[in-house]
Nucleic acid binder design. Structure first.
Lengths: 339, 339
DNA sequence: CTGAAAGCGCTAACAT
DNA sequence: ATGTTAGCGCTTTCAG
């Protein structure tokens, strides 16, 4: 708590060897006599020595750290980020790399600063998981000399490598499922304007058209992925002259809002109303009835991203510009045949 | 993406000045001619130069970074961490410090490694927010030469400075509230064994005794802060010969589980059953009826912790060993008079 | 106001 | 198997 940290030189001096030998022991290099190794290890143990990271990074030119930039970690609409982080964290751990998580609070200046920080030698690669695509940080990313991958990225088509979820198929699967159950008035509660939103909407409309059902713009409502916005959207839909018999919400949280609204009006789910969500967060299995939803491979997204970017830092071949991860329809109790 | 990063020397060479002048400009030191400053800034802009963090940290001996160690960011029982993080992040930003968040997955080895990492010059101070108190990392924390604060810490009384929430009062407030409403059969759904759990339980029992109500161990059930565990605990309680008319759950998530279980049995809340949670996560205001709960000052906890530890790194006076933050009873719709 | 020298703690590349 | 030499890119200290 008070005394200054030990250094390599001191350890070397105490153990009566050169700095290099200590360095080799620390880094598990072979070519050190077992006896010497033992002695050095003892000194390290006793003194509680830990190698200084800055010095090590500076000298080696590598940090073995991946930076991950996210908007927030608490708000409802970013709940799914936790799962991505878990996948990324586990993967990083397996490689014995560190993961450095930075939050931006959806603030343009912070987005820029965080990325700049990471690019200034704090990390060997950057993973960007932001719903906003500001020109400021995008150009920074393109200029930086370390690998970058954007994850599930919002608005703009960038020349940066990206890993995305197959949102279009997600939109199709949900809609087709409801159609198969005989529903014809299927409402769509969208998220904030983003590529994910557009692609899912496109899938929804495509399936309707394929089945000869006109797209009714009255049934397409805007939300923001949060529970309250799903509630509000549902209230609006229920007040329509010809209300929907099924609702497809672009997040599980919004689907919960729909269920809440339905419950307050005495509508039973799934008998009076079928509901499909998106994400498959753990809570989807906890509510009653359990939520039918589109599962995003979030853990896998994090995992894949780490594996890929570490490969990139090793100078391995950079894979195709855009990678698409599959989604899956999970049928539970919140959907049933239309009456 | 490919060309190597710029260095201070190159900027200095291009601008035709010495390294020191560039350094002074970057760090906003005064005593640089405006003209020179302009010229250097231009070069920096054009080249996209960013100062290398490792070099800077190494030379200055400071990182202006606080490390925060948490178990996970996604699991239900750690949902409240997001709010702490928000407070910490905002406070760090105001000081222009960085926040480095590390997750451990409740894994002893990772706890140790993460803390060791941070103590190895990655951070100037460490905030520990772990529900587990393993001797391995505790002794490491006590040996380290940088300031450490434990937050809302679990099991063991350590000699480390700590910031905690007033759990005891929380337990009292919830119980007293239900008592005031006329309830006599008040169940308690606990969390995993920890100081927080014990203190809240103590408050609960204390108030009961003060009011001459015998503590019925049948009404004290163990949970793990998750929604499903609350559900299970409620199922158990409802099957008792003499079931409770009110339930106090040690997390909002468990309270949701209780509400779910009650709903499936046709018990109306609050008429047939009063429910009090703990935390006051945003979702507490979204469910129907809204949840009466004990609000923890989570944002403030994060904020306070950062302010304190930055002060400590500046060598400022170390405040009392243990700081207690107040809790608050938030009365909403899930509690009412006993019939 | 600006610059030169020294060194932060470590590793890479070469000796021995 | 171990030691020596040279820096990594920056800041600190002290001179001009």
């Amino acid at each position: 708590m008070t005394r200054p940290a030990m250094t390599l030189s001191e350890i070397a001096r105490i153990a009566g060897v050169s700095k290099m030998t200590v360095s080799n022991v620390i880094n598990g290099k072979k070519g050190v006599a077992e006896e010497t190794r033992q002695r050095i290890m003892e000194v390290i143990q006793e003194t509680g020595y830990i190698a200084n990271r800055s010095a090590r990074n500076l000298a080696s030119g590598r940090t073995r750290t991946i930076g991950l930039v996210v908007p927030k970690l608490n708000s409802n609409y970013t709940l799914y980020i936790g799962e991505i982080l878990r996948g990324a964290g586990d993967a990083a751990d397996q490689h014995h790399w560190d993961l450095l998580v930075c939050t931006t609070s959806d603030d343009e200046e912070r987005e820029f600063r965080r990325i700049q920080s990471l690019a200034s030698g704090l990390a060997d690669g950057i993973l960007v998981l932001l719903p906003r695509a500001e020109q400021s940080y995008l150009s920074l990313l393109q200029e930086t000399h370390i690998p970058v991958i954007t994850l599930d990225h919002g608005l703009i088509e960038t020349p940066l490598p990206s890993i995305d979820v197959d949102n279009h198929t997600g939109g199709r699967l949900a809609t087709q499922h409801l159609l198969d159950l005989g529903h014809r008035r299927i409402a769509f509660i969208g998220g904030t304007y983003s590529r994910a939103h557009l692609e899912r909407l496109d899938g929804y409309q495509e399936v309707l058209k394929e089945n000869g059902i006109p797209v009714d713009s009255e049934l397409i409502v805007q939300g923001d992925y949060s529970q309250p916005s799903g509630f509000k959207a549902a209230e609006h839909l229920f007040n329509l002259h010809d209300p929907p018999t099924a609702i497809f919400a672009l997040s599980d949280a919004m689907a919960f809002g729909v269920m809440e609204s339905a419950g307050r009006r005495g509508l039973r789910i799934p008998d009076d109303l079928s509901v499909v969500g998106f994400d498959d967060i753990p809570m989807a299995g906890w509510v009653h009835p359990q939520l039918t939803t589109i599962r995003q491979p979030l853990y896998q997204l994090g995992e894949t991203a780490i594996n890929l970017i570490i490969a990139m830092t090793d100078g391995d071949v950079l894979p195709g510009q855009r990678m698409l991860l599959p989604v899956e329809l999970v049928v539970r109790g919140s959907t049933t045949k239309a009456r």
